[in-house]
Amino acid sequence: MMRHSDISGEGFARSRTLKMLIDCKQITFGGNHKLKIFGTLNCSSGRRMKIANRVFFKNEQEASSAGYRPCGHCMRAAYQKWKLLNADS
């Protein structure tokens, strides 16, 4: 897991570093640290979150093992599966 605020640089330099990490597939999912939700990088819900709450993951397994659940908007099937498995909790 990598916090957005921990990516070096500011403004354009941070954006460039982030794009490089995405292009080389070191980041494939984004999440909200406070809500413990993760989703695709192009999810409209994720784009609205504050940088201070934003985290990134290399894959779904990393996000799930960190205790995050799938987004109900951009990962509907994975969310439904998660919801069924955690219905008793």
Rank of each mutant, 00 (worst) to 15 (best):
Y68W: 07
V55A: 04
S45N: 14
I22L: 08
R76W: 14
R14E: 04
A77W: 04
Q26H: 08
A52I: 09
Q80V: 00
G11R: 13
R3Q: 14
K34D: 15
M2F: 10
G31I: 03
Q61H: 08
T28G: 04
S44W: 11
K58W: 07
H73D: 12
L41Y: 09
F12A: 12
K34C: 08
N53M: 04
I7E: 06
S8A: 08
K36P: 04
E60Q: 10
R3C: 09
F57A: 01
F57M: 06
I27S: 05
P70L: 00
G9L: 07
L41C: 09
S15V: 08
K81Y: 13
G9W: 01
C71K: 06
T17V: 01
G31N: 07
N59Y: 07
N53A: 01
G30D: 07
F56C: 10
S64T: 11
K83C: 08
M20G: 09
T28Q: 05
Q26R: 11
T40K: 15
R69N: 04
K50R: 15
K19M: 00
V55Q: 02
R16Y: 06
K50L: 15
G72I: 06
F56D: 04
C24T: 08
M1I: 09
F56E: 06
N42K: 00
A63S: 05
Q61N: 11
R3E: 15
I27T: 10
C71F: 12
G67C: 07
Y68E: 04
S8I: 07
I37E: 05
L41D: 01
I37W: 04
T28M: 11
D6Q: 08
M75D: 01
N53D: 15
F29Q: 03
D6V: 00
G9F: 02
K81R: 15
K50T: 13
M75G: 00
T28H: 00
I22A: 03
D88S: 12
T28I: 04
Y79P: 02
W82P: 07
R48Y: 10
M1N: 09
Y79V: 02
R76K: 15
H4Q: 14
K83Q: 14
L84Y: 14
E62T: 03
L84I: 08
L18G: 03
L41K: 09
A63E: 03
S8T: 05
I51K: 15
M49P: 00
E62Y: 02
K25C: 12
I22N: 08
G46H: 11
D23T: 00
L35Y: 04
I7F: 02
K83M: 12
L84V: 03
W82F: 14
N59R: 02
M2D: 04
D23E: 09
L41T: 06
G11C: 13
L18D: 06
